[in-house]
Amino acid sequence: MTRIKSFTIFEILISLSIFAAILSIFSLSFSNFKKREKNSYFIEYHQMILKIEDRYGKTEWSDKDQKIRFLTNGHEDTYSYFRFKKASVQMTTSEGGTMPLIDNVKRFKIFSINDRLNILVEFLDGTTFQNRLMIKKRRTDVLPK
C-alpha cells in the first residue's frame, strides 16, 4: 500500500496561526500609521494657524469686495489673501509673493460670522479642522487699490 504525502491537520493549523499573527501585526501597524498621519495633519494645521495669526497683534482683516484680505499695520499699501490651488493653500500678497501654508487639502474655506474670522480645512483623507482666528476686523474698511 502506497502512502500519499500530504500535510497533517496539525501542520495546517500551525501555518494558519502564523499567518493570523502576521496579519494582526500588519493591521496594528497600519492603524498606528493612520493615527500618525492624522497627528501630522493636526500639527500642519496648527502651524498654518500660527503663521496666519500675528502674535504681536499687528494683523487685521477686511472683507471689502466680498474677499477676505489681511492687512498689516505699518504696511498700508499691501495686503495678503488666501489661494487654494492644486490641493495646497497658499498665502499671496498684493505684490505677488506667495507662501505655501499647507498641502494635501481637499477643501479650504475662510469666512466671517459676526465679525469673527473662521477657517475650515478638510484634508484629502477626510480629516477636518475648523477654528476661529484671533485677528481683529479693521473698522475703517480702507484698502489699498
Score class of each variant (00 low, 15 high):
33 F>N: 14
34 K>V: 03
127 T>L: 08
27 S>G: 07
139 R>L: 15
45 Y>E: 02
113 I>G: 03
49 I>L: 07
109 K>D: 15
57 G>W: 08
66 Q>C: 02
15 S>R: 04
6 S>T: 11
23 L>P: 12
4 I>D: 04
72 T>I: 07
62 S>K: 00
27 S>T: 14
113 I>E: 05
60 E>N: 08
62 S>W: 00
116 R>C: 14
52 I>N: 03
112 S>P: 14
13 L>G: 01
55 R>W: 03
35 K>N: 05
28 L>H: 05
99 M>A: 01
107 R>P: 09
139 R>K: 06
26 F>H: 13
126 G>Y: 04
132 R>H: 07
133 L>G: 08
27 S>K: 14
23 L>C: 10
138 R>S: 13
129 F>W: 01
101 L>C: 04
105 V>D: 00
106 K>Q: 15
47 Q>C: 04
144 P>E: 09
9 I>W: 07
3 R>S: 11
86 K>F: 03
50 L>F: 05
4 I>F: 08
58 K>D: 11
144 P>S: 12
79 Y>D: 06
48 M>T: 11
19 F>Q: 13
27 S>A: 12
129 F>S: 01
7 F>V: 12
108 F>L: 02
79 Y>E: 08
125 D>F: 00
66 Q>A: 10
28 L>A: 02
132 R>K: 10
64 K>F: 14
140 T>W: 04
117 L>D: 07
97 G>M: 13
64 K>V: 15
23 L>K: 02
120 L>I: 06
57 G>E: 05
26 F>C: 06
14 I>H: 06
11 E>T: 06
100 P>I: 07
120 L>M: 09
121 V>M: 05
71 L>D: 07
73 N>H: 09
43 I>F: 09
133 L>P: 03
37 E>F: 12
58 K>Q: 13
76 E>S: 12
26 F>P: 05
105 V>Y: 03
45 Y>F: 15
